[in-house]
Amino acid sequence: MDAKEFIVRRTAKFFKDGDVVNLGIGMPTMVANYIPEDVDVWLDTENGAIGLNGEPDAEHTDLDLVDATGVPSTLRTGACCFDSFTSFGLIRGGHVAFTILGAFEVDQEGNLANWTVPGKITVGMGGAMDLVSGARQVLITTLHTDKNGNSKILKKCRLPLTAVHAVDYIITELCVLHYNGEGLVLEELAPGVTVEEVIAKTEADLIIPEQIGSMV
């Protein structure tokens, strides 16, 4: 199992029956493939539906039904469609249980930067700022370090922020970190990973509890 699959498998275990869950682009989209079969989760797409059900075959493609990346999708029984205004009311109003997003940077104050790298990436924030300010739980799925081995979990984000004090959990290939309002608590470790290894690979200060769980 590669690191990303390990991360999304753990992330999918956060949900309980009836949860409305919004999955961001990239690694978060993969979470849909690993939701336990006995948990009834409703996938929200901010362009206007709850109850997305994966890509259609060519014969059943409807261009009026797409996911948040614009790719044709399908609806499960019990799904509903709505306009963008209603969609973001649901998001901002706390009616979405989880939003799962990637990060350029995240920090020990629960701050998130994932929408712009000035001079390099200028695409806009889309719905990310509303999702992180409104969803009841904000989960960040990210590799622990960047391509050069630098920690993505910082003392203080350097990039322009997406939201302040908004992150609840960070799930990486090494550990699960929980922002408890005061700092990042090391709640779970991946098999074979030590506290010392996490500390060595993390710029942020971590709160180390007496009991640390396992990610599997």
Partner: peptide
């Protein structure tokens, strides 16, 4: 009337 996710920003 709009269809599925083709509603989006049309009504507002």
């Amino acid at each position: 009337i709009y269809h599925h996710t083709a509603k989006n920003f049309n009504p507002i």
